[in-house]
Design a protein around this nucleic acid. Structure first.
Length: 388
DNA sequence: TCTGGGGTCCTAGGACCC
DNA sequence: TCTGGGGTCCTAGGACCC
């Protein structure tokens, strides 16, 4: 197996940093992006900004600047709680069109230098630097890791020139370790973990640092007396499989040793497209039926619009309902032919809705279309089989 | 102080077919 | 009439990620 040089690039406080490009006067202040459309945020025209003080209603922090994080305000935190911790922090509404624009800019800048890029959402990518590292062997440093670091520095510079934004980069032999490494020197850092560094650098870390070990697995590991990645690496494979199942247990055994051979994937087909919305106030299935019905139809229209714009049709129509107690149920229905038609989606979603208990208030409604195909291509295939 | 919106992958049971 | 195993599709839920 040829050694690989894989980078993980993470934009620093991405949404908040894009906002600071627009409002440079907020630099150095705690700023939070998030919240719901409108609410307390129709300011800025007169040069003043809304703060978190007295915020009421739903919504979570999407991104906070490092100044806000210093006050204990992090992503996914409820805004009411954030308001208690940092009442004077500036609250800005999310502007996803702007973030998508800057996302496209930074990714294009990276691809100019290293074309093997895997999308991991709006503000993160993996980059396979192996070819670039090999190509610079003649004129660069003798140590390939030093040449990889030089490439990362070029990439950081290109991203800054294209967007005015900073990013952090981790470089290691695989995606698993690079994801860990990019967090080590935030913001603006470049961190390298060589194979020999796994014991010294990675093993003392909490298991939760591993991408794929979430709150549940973390709690279970803790109960089993496993806190660090090194402690996880001491457990034998059979025991892990007993505790966590065949697939997950075997995966844990490998990642604890820093092993991961997943390739950098530059393109993949989407599996599903969905829209969902959380209501300002919980709605009652009977009393608020007209409103719910309108929202339901709108969601179907938006999903249909997404499908058409992206050139997909889907066979599996699904709905999602979250009750006031946060319990969530899903139902789906597979229809005969792929569709991107809002009425067809609405009809199938309506059938799904009949199978779900409507005996308490609802806080969220969602519509999803899966088992996707590209309508044009599907047609060609079936045409061909007609004549075979 | 209750917890957004968009996804992926895995598991597991039952239907159905060979 | 009973037995059985494998493969695939459908559905529901859950963990996890950004």
């Amino acid at each position: 197996m040829v050694p690989r040089y894989i980078a993980h690039l993470d934009m620093d406080a991405f949404y908040a940093s894009v906002e600071l490009l627009r409002y440079p006067q907020l630099k150095g202040r705690p700023v939070v992006v998030g919240g719901r459309r409108r609410s307390a945020q129709e300011s800025a025209d007169d040069g003043t900004f809304a703060t978190l003080r007295g915020y009421t209603g739903r919504g979570v922090v999407t991104t906070s600047t490092y100044e806000a994080r210093a006050l204990g305000v992090f992503s996914a935190m409820g805004l009411m709680k954030a308001a208690k911790l940092a009442p004077d922090a500036i609250l800005l509404p999310a502007d996803f069109d702007a973030y998508r624009k800057y996302s496209g800019l930074f990714k294009a800048a990276v691809r100019e230098i290293a074309p093997q890029v895997e999308d991991r959402g709006i503000d993160e990518i993996y980059i396979d630097l192996s070819e670039g590292v090999a190509a610079s062997a003649a004129e660069g440093a003798p140590d390939p890791w030093a040449r990889a670091r030089a490439l990362a520095l070029d990439i950081q510079r290109a991203v800054r020139e294209a967007t005015g934004l900073s990013c952090s980069i981790g470089i290691t032999p695989n995606k698993l370790l690079s994801k860990i490494a990019s967090e080590l020197n935030k913001p603006g850092g470049i961190s390298v973990i060589r194979p020999d560094d796994v014991r010294g650098v990675v093993w003392p870390m909490a298991v939760r640092k591993i991408n794929g070990i979430g709150p549940k697995a973390n709690a279970k590991l803790e109960k089993l007396g496993v806190r660090t990645i090194g402690e996880l690496a001491q457990k034998d494979a059979g025991w892990l499989v007993e505790q966590f199942g065949r697939s997950y247990g075997a995966w844990m055994y490998r990642v604890a040793r820093g092993e991961d051979d997943r390739p950098v994937v530059t393109w993949s087909e989407p599996k599903s497209i969905s829209r969902e919305t959380t209501f300002e106030d919980d709605l009652h299935p009977v009393r608020d039926r007209p409103r719910l019905s309108k929202i339901f139809t709108d969601l179907c229209l938006r999903v249909a619009g997404d499908l058409e714009r992206k050139g997909y049709a889907g066979k599996t129509i699904g709905i999602k309902i979250r009750y006031d107690n946060f319990h969530t149920v899903t139902r789906d229905l597979t229809i005969d032919r792929p569709t991107q038609d809002a009425k067809t989606i609405r009809r199938a979603a309506g059938e799904c809705l009949k199978r779900v208990p409507l005996d308490r208030r609802i806080r969220l409604l969602g519509v999803r279309v899966g088992t996707l195909s590209r309508p044009g291509l599907a047609q060609e295939v079936s045409d061909r089989s007609l004549f075979d």
